[in-house]
């Protein structure tokens, strides 16, 4: 199998830049969310539809990013 319709785009969640990477792999749709800087994977979801995969990935990324505290420097 080969990845099809590979796509990357950037969004913002709670003020953090997030890269959304999506593609179809076999019968499943994969959506990955990473935090751009430094680029750590926050969510990698495989689901039966592209919409479902993205919704779950963004939900998980939102949950994780919501826990990040900004400290006074």
């Amino acid at each position: 199998m080969k990845a099809e319709n590979y796509n990357e785009r950037r969004i913002e969640i709670d003020g953090w830049p997030v890269r959304i990477t999506s593609y179809k792999l076999g019968e499943r749709y994969v959506c990955e969310a990473d935090n751009v800087s430094p680029g750590a994977i926050l969510a990698r979801i495989a689901a039966p539809s592209a919409e479902d995969a993205e919704k779950q990935a963004i939900s998980k990324a939102t949950h994780l990013l919501g826990k990040t505290k900004r400290h006074e420097v």
Binding site: W16, N35, P38, A40, L64, K67, R70, H71
Partner: peptide, 24 residues
Amino acid sequence: VRSPQEFSGEILAPPGLPETCQRG
């Protein structure tokens, strides 16, 4: 080689990851 916010001390781990230190 961390992100600028980790370097400055604004955050203690990459955004969305658990804090694993006492000081930034």
